[in-house]
Amino acid sequence: MNAFVTLLRREYQENRAGFLWTPIVVGAVFTLLTLVGIAAAMVKGPKAGLVIDGVPVSELIGRLGPEELAKLGGGLDVALGGLWVLVQAALYFVVLFYLLGALFDERRDRSVLFWKSLPVSDAKTVLSKAASAVFVAPLIAWAVSVAFGLVFLVVLSGYALWLGLNPVTAIWGPASPLSVLAATFAMVPLTALWSLPMVGWMLLCSAFAGQRPLLWAIGLPALTGLMLTWLGVLRVFRDGAEFYWQHVFLRLTTSILPGSWSWFDGAGFGIGFDPASTSIAASLVSAAQSLVTNPATWIGALVGAVLLAASAEVRRRLGD
């Protein structure tokens, strides 16, 4: 088997709890809440055969205009997106702690001596850990989101049937699960590109910290910012302080969050799930555009590459 695939599989095996089970637990909680909501609606809400303004519930969907149908579909998509956001929030912590431990735990338990007894370079090792953080974990989280999204739609279909509605026209027609699926998938490589400085920084802290890599990873840039602000150094530049916190501090500590590149350009949270205004595809295109046209993306990618190389070098020298 390809050696790099072996390295990725090893990372997955060590971190199965975070990579696989954490998103599953989040998805399961989401499903549970959905079920509770539906059960409540079944008890208190409209019943099958109910007539609203002279229209039986079962015929309600057929009477909706295209605009109202779009709103219904948009609402369903927002719910699917909400599931994805919850999973991503959990994934943030999973990946943060994964990166901080990636080159730290092996030193603490001395297993680094075993890993280094095999013909794998330090650069390849570091790359496999970066790839696990930006591709393996997010893709698993994405697949889990998709699976639980399907469960969510199936559950809603059951509720629609119970109401006497046709689930195809009430749920699967108006909603756009395929677009949500494709858009959230496309966010993985976009986020990977944007998050390189954070990934490199966390791995570097993991490689050199004697104890508590988290303290270094968050504390050092935070203290630096406070010092610079306090000393007034940043006032030399216009909006210097704002620049530091936004482009250095937040970039180093939060950029693995999908869409975090558009926090400051007024475009909202990456993919806007505003049902009425834009389509998912259009928001994805605008998110991608705001990413690749931003010079900060490419400068950060360069910084990230340097930090990754530094992590590999620190790991190589750690026998001293």
Partner: peptide
Amino acid sequence: VSFIADVAVLPRWIRVREALDYVEGVHP
């Protein structure tokens, strides 16, 4: 070159099967 540093360096989380998979995957 192979080496054994001492008995305590095998990663404690790994399964025996996974350790074999890993060495098989990276060592020609």
